[in-house]
């Protein structure tokens, strides 16, 4: 890495770091946002589950409960983010749903997998929707099925949805930090080569630097002085040999 690389590094690292900070901040906020949305939905789901379980206490099988459609409709009406609400049997078939076409249909594999691997509340993500589910139990603690609510995935603060806002809000800050980094790089990397070039020029011209700067300057002056001696010796030898050659 030379001077240009060092300069770029000094300019780029602060910008990348500032961008990284914005990214991390955006994700922190998005996760908190999604967490609050999920908490709201899970609370709603728990409410539906509790109400359906109260109906189960009457002793009727889940499929024969009369009030479930009303409970589901009421819940969906109270939460604009919820697209649909279902009650699912243990066999994975939809028993009740605010989406009438889903009744009697098997649930998507993602839901079945999520429900099978979870002991409590579960969540299944699909391309455009996220489904929250909670088991339904009777008075004896036996599982009767699940309640599920389906929401639009966009409502759960998808990753990087805040990034654009933050970057546009902090654009000037990014430019300023890049300029500061570049300035720092210029200061750090501008001085290094000047005295080296001066030392090189003095060696090339065989003119000692007075006073010498640092070990390199001292060594350069020593080399210049030594080269003068060497040159004198070599030329003297050459003269002697030429004289001898002329004699012969």
């Amino acid at each position: 890495m030379g001077r240009t690389g060092g300069l770029l590094l000094c300019a780029i690292v602060p910008v990348l770091a500032a961008l990284g900070f914005l990214l991390v901040s955006a994700r922190v906020v998005e996760r908190a946002d999604a967490g609050l949305s999920a908490a709201e939905l899970e609370f709603l789901l728990s409410g539906i589950t509790r109400t359906v379980e109260l109906n189960l206490q009457l002793g009727l099988p889940l499929a024969e409960l009369q009030q479930v459609d009303t409970i589901l409709e009421s819940a969906v009406a109270s939460a604009p983010d919820v697209l649909a609400a279902d009650v699912i049997s243990l066999t994975g078939v939809t028993l009740f749903s605010t989406d009438r076409g889903a009744v009697g249909e098997p649930v998507p594999p993602a839901w079945a997998d999520a429900a099978a691997t979870s002991r409590g509340m579960w969540r299944a993500s699909e391309r455009e929707t996220v489904t929250f589910g909670e088991p339904l139990s009777n008075d004896f603690g036996q599982r009767e099925g699940w309640v599920a609510i389906i929401v639009d995935a966009e409502r759960l603060a998808p990753p990087l949805s805040r990034m654009g806002t933050l970057i546009s809000g902090a654009a000037l800050v990014l430019v300023a930090v890049a300029a500061a980094g570049l300035g720092l790089g210029l200061v750090i990397y501008s001085r290094t080569n000047r005295w080296i070039a001066a030392t090189g020029a003095s060696v090339r011209a065989r003119a000692p630097i007075e006073p010498p700067r640092g070990a390199l300057g001292i060594a350069a002056n020593a080399a210049i002085s030594g080269m003068g001696d060497t040159e004198a010796r070599v030329e003297r030898v050459q003269r002697d040999l030429r004289r001898l050659d002329a004699e012969l």
């Binding site: 500032a18 900070f21 901040s25 906020v29 933050l166 546009s168 800050v173 990014l174 930090v177």
Partner: peptide, 23 residues
């Protein structure tokens, strides 16, 4: 130190400028 200072300052200003609507 200067880089840390620049980035720290930039982060602080970004929080002041860009974060309020998000928060």
């Amino acid at each position: 130190l200067l880089t840390a200072l620049f980035v720290g300052l930039a982060s602080y200003v970004a929080v002041i400028v860009a974060m309020p609507p998000v928060l």
